[in-house]
Design a protein around this nucleic acid. Structure first.
Lengths: 349, 349
DNA sequence: TCTGAGCACTCGTACTCATTGAGTGCTTAC
DNA sequence: GTAAGCACTCAATGAGTACGAGTGCTCAGA
C-alpha cells in the first residue's frame, strides 16, 4: 500500500487513506465502493458513519463522485490523478512477463513486424487497447540513399538511418532513367546529405542540390518536388498500430453497447489518437498518463492513455495503452515502460 | 425484379416469386416478413392465407424459417443461395460511386497504401467489413534482386516482380560483407533467376546456386537458409487488411452484444478469414459468395463472404466483404467486382 | 470537536404479471 | 386451389412491487 506522504496539503492522512482504498477497490471490482465496505475490510478502527463523513469531504473536494444517491463512491478523474501521483505503489513486472515480452519480440528482425507484434502483445498482457507508433524518422540521422529502378517508370528510393532503420518509398518517374545516371545522382546525394537529420535535409534540400541541376535536371527536379514525401514523417505512412480490441471489451464497462461503439469509433478514427500522442510527445517525459477529461477530447473523456517513449539514438516513437479510466495503473505503467525499453533495445541491436 | 427462370425445378413460379419477396424484404428491413405484408404489398391477387400455404411449403423445403411461431418468415442460408443464384437482379453501380472509387484509389502510387485505402473505402461504401489481401507474389515473375547493405550487419533485399510490385526483406547477416561481393552475388542471382516465378525459384533455388558456393560460400548459404523468407508468401507478411468495423456494427443484428463480440473475434483472429479466403481462391472464379453455414466454420456461421479476385499479370489477390448473411447482395457483389477490377488496373499501371 | 449509532430516505435492480399485437396453423366453405 | 375465420402462440412492453445497498442527517457520548 502506498505510503501516505505530505506531498499534497489538500488532504490529511485519513482522507488520503480512504481515497486510496476507494480507488484501489474500484479499480479491482468496478463496483462503486460504500462506506460500510471500507469500514469492514480496511479501516476497522473507524465506523461506516465516520467514513461517510470523510467521503463527503472528498466528494466536495472533487476526488470522488456518486453515480446516484444509493450507490457507493467512484473516483473522479482528479481522484485517479491524486492516486497515481501520491498514493499508488508501482507493481513490479513479473519475471515471467518479462520473459514473455522478450521471447515474443525476439522472433523477427523486421522493424515493422516487431512493432506489430508489440501491439498484439501489449494488448494481451494489459487487457487494454494497445497503441504503437512507428519511429519518427525526422530526427534520425541520414546514413545513405539508394535509388533502384523498378519496371519502366518507377523508382524505389531506400533511405537508411544510422540506427539501421530503413524507409522505402516508391516514386513515379515519368521517363526511364539510365542506371549510371541514377548511381551518379545517388552518389552525390549521399555525399551531400551525410550526417544530417532527415528534418534538416527536408528544410535545406533545395539549397544543397541547387548546383547539381545542370547535370541531371529532370531527376533532381523530381526529388525537389518529392522532398516532403521522402524526408517527412507522413501521417499516412507512419501510422499508429492499434490492437487488442478483443481484450478491452471484456471489461465490465463494455456491457453498455454505447461504450462499445465509442471504442470502435476510437479505433477507426485514428486521428484522435494521433493527436493525443502528439501531446504526449510534447511533454518529453519518459511516460505520460492522461486521465479522462484531462485529454480535452469529448470522445475520449472516459478513457485514459498511458504511453512511454522509446528512443533509439534520437529516433523516437511511442508505445502505450488506452483503456477505461478505471485502469490498473500500478500494473500498466511499469508494463508500458518496460515494453518501451525493450523495443528500444531491439531496434538498436 | 429478377425474372422467374426454370433453372431450378424445385420451385414453381409462385413459390419463387414469394421467396423473392421474402428475401428481398428481409434484406431491406431486417424484420421477419409476414404473409399479410406480402399479400398487401406485392401479391395483391393472393390472400394472406394462400401465401401462408406457400410459405409453409418453402419452409418445408428448407428455404425459409421461423424465429418463433408468432413471427414472420426469415430466409435460411439455402434461401439466400437460391435468391442469389436464380432470383436476384444485380444492381448497377452508380457513376458517382465509380468516380469515388477511382478518386480514392488514384491518390497514391504505393501499392500497400492503395490496398489500405481500398479497405477503408470498401467498408464505407458497402457498410460491411472489408477484406483486402496483398497480392500473392509466389506466381509473380522475378524481375530482379538488389542487395543493399544497411548499417553493420544487415542486408536489405529488394525483389521486384515484373508487374512493378516489390518486396523488401530485411536480413540479418552475421558479418559485414564487402559491397563488391554483394554486387557480384546479386548479379549472378539476377542472371540465374530471371524469368522464373518466385514459386519456381523457391523450389529450385538450391540447385540453381549450387556451383556458386565456392566463391561466396557464407552469403550463399545465408540465402539458402532464408529462401522461404524471401520467395514465399509468408502469412505474417502478406496479411489481410480488415476494415470498416464502424460501418458494420450499425446493422441491426449488432444490437445483441453477443454478435458484437463475434465480429471482434473475427477481426482479431485473422486466421479464420485467411483460411476462408484460401477456399475462395481454390474455386478460381471471378467472384465467390459463401453464405453462413456454407463456409463450414462455427464462428462465421452467421456471416457471408463476398470476394472477387484481382489479377495483375498472374499475380493475384482478393478483395471482398464480410457481413451478416442478411446482406444486400445485389449491391455488394457488383461493388466488390468493380473494386477488384479497379485495383488490378491501378496495380498494373 | 470528533466519533459513531440510529433511522429515514433514495434509487437502481430484479421479478412478477397482465396486456397487446403480430403472425401462424388449421379448419372449413367455395 | 383459394381464401375467410378463428383459436393459439409467443415476444415485447409496461406497470407494480419488493429488495437492498448506501447515503445523509441528527444526536448522544467521549
Amino acid at each position: 500500500m502506498g505510503e501516505v506522504t505530505d506531498n499534497n496539503q489538500a488532504l490529511n492522512e485519513r482522507e488520503q487513506s480512504i481515497l486510496h482504498h476507494v480507488v484501489h477497490n474500484y479499480i479491482q471490482t468496478a463496483i462503486p465502493v460504500g462506506s460500510r465496505y471500507i469500514s469492514k475490510h480496511f479501516e476497522s478502527s473507524l465506523s461506516a458513519a465516520s467514513i461517510r463523513n470523510v467521503m463527503a469531504d472528498l466528494e466536495e473536494l472533487g476526488f470522488l463522485s456518486h453515480p446516484h444517491t444509493s450507490a457507493g463512491r467512484v473516483p473522479t478523474d482528479l481522484g485517479y490523478r491524486f492516486y497515481i501521483d501520491y498514493l499508488m505503489e508501482m507493481q513490479q513486472l513479473g519475471d515471467d512477463e518479462k520473459l514473455r515480452i522478450h521471447q515474443q519480440l525476439d522472433q523477427t528482425n523486421d522493424a515493422d513486424e516487431m512493432l506489430r507484434e508489440t501491439s498484439k502483445l501489449l494488448g494481451k498482457i494489459s487487457h487494454q487497447l494497445s497503441i504503437v507508433t512507428s519511429p519518427h524518422l525526422s530526427s534520425g540521422i541520414f546514413e545513405k540513399i539508394e535509388l533502384i529502378p523498378i519496371a519502366s517508370s518507377k523508382l524505389l528510393v531506400v533511405i537508411s538511418i544510422r540506427t539501421g532503420i530503413v524507409r522505402t518509398i516508391m516514386m513515379e518517374i515519368g521517363v526511364e532513367v539510365r542506371r549510371d545516371h541514377l548511381d551518379q545522382v545517388g552518389h552525390l546525394l549521399n555525399e551531400r546529405l551525410s550526417g544530417l537529420t532527415l528534418h534538416e535535409i527536408r528544410d535545406s534540400f533545395v539549397d544543397r542540390v541547387r548546383d547539381m541541376q545542370s547535370e541531371q535536371t529532370g531527376l533532381i527536379r523530381l526529388f525537389i518536388e518529392s522532398v516532403d514525401q521522402l524526408f517527412t514523417d507522413s501521417k499516412e505512412r507512419d501510422k499508429v498500430l492499434i490492437g487488442g480490441t478483443k481484450n478491452i471489451i471484456e471489461h465490465p464497462e463494455f456491457i453498455d453497447p454505447k461504450n462499445f461503439r465509442s471504442v470502435i469509433e476510437l479505433i477507426e478514427n485514428e486521428d484522435i489518437i494521433v493527436h493525443l500522442l502528439e501531446k504526449h510527445d510534447e511533454l518529453q517525459k519518459g511516460f505520460v498518463v492522461t486521465i479522462g477529461t484531462e485529454n480535452k477530447d469529448e470522445t475520449t473523456k472516459e478513457y485514459s492513455f498511458v504511453t512511454a517513449i522509446y528512443d533509439v539514438e534520437g529516433v523516437t516513437g511511442r508505445v502505450g495503452v488506452i483503456g477505461p479510466t478505471r485502469m490498473n495503473y500500478s500494473k500498466v505503467i511499469p508494463l508500458v515502460d518496460y515494453v518501451a525499453q525493450t523495443i528500444a533495445k531491439m531496434l538498436s541491436a
